[in-house]
C-alpha cells in the first residue's frame, strides 16, 4: 500500500492542519473566549499528530504510551481551560469587556 494512503498518515496530517487552524484562530481574534476555543483546537491537533504516530503498524494495535500521555494531556488541557475561563469571566465582570485592554482601542 502506498504511504500517502495509509490511515495513520491521514490522521497525522489532519492533526497538522488543525494545529495551523487553531494557531490562526488564536491570533486572529481579540475576543478572549474565542482564543481559548482556538487554543483547544491547537491542543487536539497536537494530540492527533502524537496519537497517529502510535498507530503506524495497525496489526499491532495502538501504542499505549502515547494514548496514556494524551489522556493526561486532555485532562490538563481542561484544567487550564477552566482556569482561563474563570480569569476571563472575572475580567469581563470587572471591566465590562471581552478583550484585553490593548485590543479595546477603537471602542469608547
Amino acid at each position: 500500500m502506498m504511504t500517502w494512503a495509509s490511515g495513520w498518515l491521514i490522521y497525522g496530517l489532519t492533526g497538522a492542519t488543525l494545529i495551523g487552524l487553531g494557531l490562526f484562530g488564536f491570533a486572529s481574534h481579540t475576543n478572549l473566549l474565542r482564543r481559548i476555543l482556538a487554543f483547544n483546537v491547537v491542543g487536539s491537533g497536537i494530540f492527533l499528530v502524537f496519537g497517529a504516530t502510535g498507530f503506524r503498524v495497525p496489526e499491532l494495535g495502538a501504542d499505549a504510551v502515547p494514548q496514556a500521555l494524551i489522556i493526561t494531556g486532555i485532562v490538563v488541557a481542561l484544567s487550564a481551560t477552566a482556569l482561563a475561563v474563570s480569569l476571563i469571566t472575572r475580567h469581563a465582570s470587572l471591566s465590562g469587556s471581552a478583550t484585553l485592554p490593548d485590543d479595546d482601542r477603537e471602542d469608547r
Binding site: 492542519t17 503498524v57 501504542d63
Partner: peptide, 19 residues
C-alpha cells in the same frame, strides 16, 4: 502545519514506538 506534515511524512512508516 506544513512543517509538522513534512516531519510526519519523513517518519519511518514501520516504526513500532514503545509497543
Amino acid at each position: 502545519s506544513a512543517a509538522v506534515g513534512v516531519v510526519l511524512i519523513a517518519l519511518d512508516p514501520n516504526g513500532l514506538g514503545l509497543i
